[in-house]
Write a protein that binds this DNA or RNA. Structure first.
Length: 371
DNA sequence: CATTTTAAACACT
DNA sequence: AGTGTTTAAAATG
């Protein structure tokens, strides 16, 4: 059914007048050179403008503004998500601080945050939806940030730049127009898809406690953090190690029976999970939790048309721009593939959103250089 | 034509 | 069951 026409589409975002300044939250200022979301036009906080961050700035006048500034209405369960009311330095990126998972159950509902302001109606307003075109007529509104960007936002706003899948879902429910129907779960599938495919996200398992099971978090890649953006999901896929698809198994293309490619999936093993000592890192997955502040991994920048428009870095704040230089750093990507994994397309740009909201400042080297 | 979304099969845990 | 991977096609600009 008509999933909801973005009629009003006014995403006032949390309290408008309310900068929601929980302290260090710079809010996301996503710039969208094309006014992706017209209404969204967020107000960039002037303060930020002066910020040293060189994330792409909306070249004023460019006529573009930004994406909806997604507010932080989080409903995370895994993290209590209390912003550091007092500028607490969030753990720098590549970290894996002993995050106390213990709190993993207390979460502050969006309301609690917003509640501060009297006039906050917090109508579920700030909901964006990734181009939900649904076939009907979406023409009204161009689109909305793609899933990858939204996820990026969610993660960026999150405490350690990491969240559990469920929390990401929650974020979407709170900040986008998803979640309306409990039935629809396709969006969750899409989220998962993006998390898996986009190299800007990595899964990390954090163990907590002795006998406890490790919980898995999805975290922004250091690069993503630095560059302040992500790239398109499609081509910017993670290395495909032959972990499962090696031998047989067959994942028939459910789609149409008419495409029997011999897909084989092996039941071999995929040890990527916990970085337990054993389980050699043979396949080298993309998630080394090790806290190696390594930097300089240039992914294969790719391009994105859509986002390109939204966020395009004016100058080169971001690392991207230079395709990976052959032979050189490959950071945590783990050795594994001789053949690189990214097929660099022709164009490349990075999706850049705002930058460093949490304390993700530059703790690492300078972004620009390496690539 | 490239990117994105959606759907669905499949592999683990 | 939930999560993570990976195809693949449809939708879209």
């Amino acid at each position: 059914m008509p999933p909801r026409q973005y009629a009003g589409y006014s995403f006032p975002r949390v309290a408008d007048g309310e900068p929601c300044s929980l302290g260090p939250l710079p809010q996301e200022l996503i710039h969208d050179p094309n006014g992706y979301l017209d209404s969204y036009r967020s107000h960039l906080t002037p303060t930020m403008a002066g910020a040293p961050l060189e994330v792409l700035t909306p070249q004023a006048g460019g006529g573009h503004s930004d994406w909806p500034a997604l507010q932080h209405s989080h409903v995370f369960k895994d993290q209590s998500y209390n912003y550091p009311m007092q500028l607490e330095p969030l753990q720098p990126p590549s970290d894996s601080p002993p995050s106390p998972l213990s709190e993993v159950s207390s979460y502050h509902s969006p309301q609690s945050l917003a509640a501060s302001s009297p006039s906050m109606k917090t109508q579920t307003a700030d909901r964006l939806s990734p181009r939900s075109s649904t076939g009907d007529n979406r023409e009204d509104r161009p689109g909305h940030p793609p899933y990858s960007v939204l996820i990026y936002q969610a993660l960026k706003d999150a405490p350690g730049n990491k969240l559990q899948l469920q929390s990401i879902y929650s974020w979407f429910e709170a900040n986008t127009d998803k979640g309306g129907d409990p039935n629809a779960k396709g969006w969750q599938n899409s989220i998962r898809h993006n998390l898996s495919m986009n190299a800007g996200f990595e899964a990390v398992k954090e163990e907590v406690g002795p006998g406890k099971k490790a919980v898995n978090f999805w975290r922004l890649t250091p690069e993503a953090i630095h560059s302040g953006g992500i790239q398109s999901t499609t081509r910017y896929r993670k290395l495909q190690h032959h972990k499962k698809a090696i031998s047989l198994g067959h994942r028939g293309p459910a789609r149409q029976p008419s495409e029997p490619k011999g897909v084989h999936a092996t039941k071999g093993f995929k040890s990527r999970g916990t970085n337990s000592p054993h389980t050699e890192r043979a396949e080298g997955y993309h998630q080394q939790i090790s806290n190696n502040p390594s930097l300089g991994p240039d992914y294969g920048p790719t391009s994105l048309p859509a986002m390109q428009r939204y966020m395009q870095h004016p100058i080169g704040p971001i690392v991207g721009c230079s395709p990976m230089i052959p032979g050189n750093n490959t950071v945590f990507v783990d050795t594994a593939e001789p053949g690189l994994a990214f097929d660099v397309g022709r164009s490349h740009d990075w999706y850049v959103l705002e930058s460093g909201s949490n304390g993700v400042h530059d703790s690492l080297g300078s972004p620009g250089r390496s690539s």
